[in-house]
């Protein structure tokens, strides 16, 4: 099989009723992170910048007072970088507050954050995930599943968790009642083999119903030189996923996409569109 990702043009074919638009409130915990993943712009590594300490997070305040949480959403995503100072209980409380203020389905943190707190606080993974469930989360975010191929991960994000660690955490999450969430990052030059290897890994999740396609947004990252993936690479990736995981819903963020791209994504099998409002730390 050739490694090249080949786009197969298809005729306009709008699915019945179009796609389902999910209104998402995205709450960013922090834009600081020590992991320095090369595809991520949450990379303010040093806790002291020019002698100025990184201010404490405002997540708890946001979760209690932010007006956006009084509005109706289909999904609330809580995610961000990795904090140095705030303990697990801080995030758990914030998630609990968010859940109490808004009835929307809550996708809280990801395997990356869970493993971080597992290491920092020496708490069992299952306990952390059970607490997350108790706090009101209904699913674990797909963070960390950009491409579940270890040589690639070693190159791009050597401090991030391994594919097996990601899978293991999501399998525990499934057992405690959190829905699994996976994603796939489309970067320029992605090959069919890489997509198939990624699919092979996420097939191990029993409750996987949605896969989120994330084209690389390289601006402000180490990979800026690569630019964004071509439209054909995104469409071809969707085609490979639809062929190999026909039962899984393909979702995509449509915030910065043109009408033409939205039409093309629908014809190619994206059935869930995410329109996002973001709450950032001040």
């Amino acid at each position: 099989m050739t490694d090249l990702l080949q786009y197969q043009p298809i005729w306009p074919n709008s699915p019945e009723g179009g796609w389902h638009v999910v209104h998402v409130l995205k709450i960013t915990t922090t834009r600081s992170c020590w992991m320095r993943c090369r595809f991520c712009d949450f990379s303010h590594f040093v806790p002291m910048i020019d002698g100025h300490p990184v201010p404490p997070l405002t997540l708890l305040q946001t979760s209690r007072t932010h007006p956006a949480l009084s509005q109706a959403y289909d999904l609330i995503k809580v995610r961000g970088g990795l904090s140095f100072f705030e303990p697990w209980s801080y995030f758990r409380s914030a998630i609990r507050d968010i859940h109490e203020r808004n009835p929307a389905s809550l996708q809280a943190l990801s395997a990356v954050e869970v493993l971080h707190f597992h290491r920092v606080e020496q708490k069992p993974l299952q306990e952390l995930l059970e607490e997350l469930r108790w706090a009101g989360a209904s699913s674990l975010g797909p963070g960390g599943s950009e491409l579940l191929i270890d040589p690639w991960r070693q190159e791009m994000s050597s401090l991030r968790l391994t594919s097996q660690e990601w899978l293991g955490i999501h399998q525990i999450a499934e057992r405690v009642g959190l829905k699994a969430g996976a994603s796939l990052m489309v970067f320029p030059g992605i090959t069919e083999r890489q997509i198939l290897d990624h699919i092979q890994m996420i097939r191990n999740l029993k409750s996987l119903s949605v896969i989120e396609i994330k084209p690389l947004r390289a601006l402000g990252t180490d990979l800026e030189i690569l630019g964004s993936p071509h439209l054909f690479e995104v469409l071809a990736t969707i085609q490979v996923i639809r062929k190999n995981l026909p039962h899984v819903i393909v979702a995509m963020n449509i915030d910065h996409l043109s009408g033409d791209v939205c039409d093309l994504l629908q014809w190619h099998g994206v059935s869930r569109a995410m329109a996002t409002k973001e709450v950032l730390e001040p």
Partner: peptide, 19 residues
Amino acid sequence: PRYAPDPARHWRRVPINPR
């Protein structure tokens, strides 16, 4: 010309580890 298939190669030429 296609982009470098292994951009990390360029990083290794930098005397300071970007991390």
